[in-house]
């Protein structure tokens, strides 16, 4: 069976939408972080798909993906560190508790 570009792109975009949905609806900070990872990974997928199907002779998208993965890892590490700080100070990581500053 011959897979077209669209068959790869649609899962990637669904993943991005799931990430956005999760970012907005989840209450747990770790779950929000997982949603953000989904979004970043779908971006990586997008770049790889476009590179593979549209520009098979070049590698620019692949390189971008490699760097983006590294950056995403750094972001996650820092975000986890900040979440741990929150946990140490209030023993909760629920966003409905992190509401001291509003409006």
């Amino acid at each position: 069976m011959n897979l077209t570009m669209l068959m790869y792109l649609i899962p990637s975009l669904i993943m991005f939408a799931c990430g956005v949905y999760g970012f907005i609806t989840r209450k747990n900070l770790i779950a929000i972080l997982i949603s953000l990872e989904l979004m970043l990974n779908s971006v990586d997928l997008n770049f790889v798909i476009f590179n593979r199907f549209l520009f098979p002779g070049q590698l620019e998208g692949m390189f971008f993906t490699l760097f983006a993965i590294g950056i995403a890892a750094a972001e996650t590490a820092l975000a986890i560190a900040i979440v741990i700080n929150i946990y140490r100070s209030i023993k909760k990581i629920d966003v409905s508790e992190i509401t001291k500053m509003k409006f």
Partner: peptide
């Protein structure tokens, strides 16, 4: 505590926006 709360808000919106 406010510093952590601000950091969480900044970090998560920063990641979201760069995504």
């Amino acid at each position: 505590y406010e510093s952590h709360e601000a950091a969480v808000k900044y970090m998560f919106t920063a990641i979201f926006s760069s995504a």
